[in-house]
Nucleic acid binder design. Structure first.
Length: 289
DNA sequence: CTGTGTTCCTGTTCGC
DNA sequence: TGCGAACAGGAACACA
């Protein structure tokens, strides 16, 4: 369930269960997810305290009292579940719906557990040293945080200048902007009135951003912030750490709405679906230019 | 270097 | 109801 608003919502849900708490043990149900777990993963985590749980793009980063960083990515289908400590004398009973895909259990001192479930196993977890935290290619190449100061029209102009790739691909590229995924790229482009098929470089002239790029920068920030305020989007009954559901999916204007009327005021267009680099793009061919 | 297609894996939905 | 095909929120990798 993983674009920036969903990952940030997960972070906020997990933080109270993890921050300031010591890991009593880690149970791995297998040796790998998308990648093998870092050698000694469980052993090195045992006894460590989580100082803070942060987010960078779509990554979660647990900062440990050892100076190491627990790097986690949810892939397409990863989710966390919190099981609070059972009352004294009562047995621990996991309440996950699909225990076959519970791959990692963090047991915290005091009895609470955080369980990672991931049917498709596109997610992964790595344990990075303080040095690797700064140099690891997965993190070092990440682009700007879209909700931070780093994203504005000038930054977009630098990313797009001379680039022949379509806007859809340029915005999905995590080396440009960290945290956008298929849904929010489609939504932001519709809000900005820009075609996902348009070459990125056509929005830059002489290194300077066009008016459209300013709209795009604002549309990206707006849609992400609104999704965050709604607790993210919930597809296929995916639930949050506390079992609740995000509800931004009800606010989609184009995503998964092929054949529907364009929601833009005064636009008579119909939402179309096209495939770009193997992935569905939803857009209005009439008002997105 | 740049842009595109393939691939990893399982589960759900859709058309017949 | 069953059954195969298509598709799914990501992104590393191979290749032209």
């Amino acid at each position: 369930m993983p674009e920036l608003p969903e990952v940030e919502t997960v972070r906020r849900g997990l933080a109270p269960a993890m921050e300031g708490r010591a890991i009593a043990g880690v149970d791995l149900a297998r040796g790998d997810l998308r990648f093998p777990f870092t050698p000694g993963f469980a052993k090195r985590l045992k006894g460590r305290r989580v100082l803070a749980l942060r987010r960078r793009g779509k990554y979660l980063l647990g900062e440990l009292d050892s100076g190491e960083t627990l790097l986690m990515h949810l892939g397409m289908s990863g989710s966390f579940r919190i099981d609070h400590a059972a009352p004294i004398g009562e047995p621990y009973i996991p309440r996950g719906r699909n225990p076959a895909h519970d791959h990692v259990v963090f047991r915290f001192e005091g009895g609470a557990r955080v369980t990672y479930n991931d049917p498709r196993r596109f997610g992964f977890m790595l344990l990075l040293t303080a040095k690797e935290r700064e140099t690891h290619p997965l993190l070092a190449g990440l682009g700007v945080e879209p909700l931070g100061e780093g994203l504005d029209a000038d930054a977009l102009a630098r990313m797009f200048d001379g680039r022949a790739a379509p806007l859809k691909a340029a915005l999905l590229d995590q080396k440009n902007i960290a945290g956008l995924g298929n849904i929010y790229v489609c939504e932001a482009l519709h809000r900005a009135g820009l075609s996902p098929l348009r070459a990125a470089r056509t929005l830059v002239s002489g290194g300077k951003p066009s008016a459209a790029l300013k709209r795009l920068a604002k549309a990206i920030k707006d849609v992400l912030q609104q999704a965050l305020d709604a607790g993210g989007s919930t597809l296929r009954d995916h639930h949050l750490t506390d079992g609740s559901l995000g509800y931004f999916q009800h606010s989609f204007r184009v995503y998964d709405r092929e054949g529907a009327a364009c929601p833009k005021k005064g636009c008579a267009g119909t939402i179309a679906r096209v495939v770009q680099s193997g992935r569905s793009t939803f857009h209005c061919p009439v008002c997105q230019k």
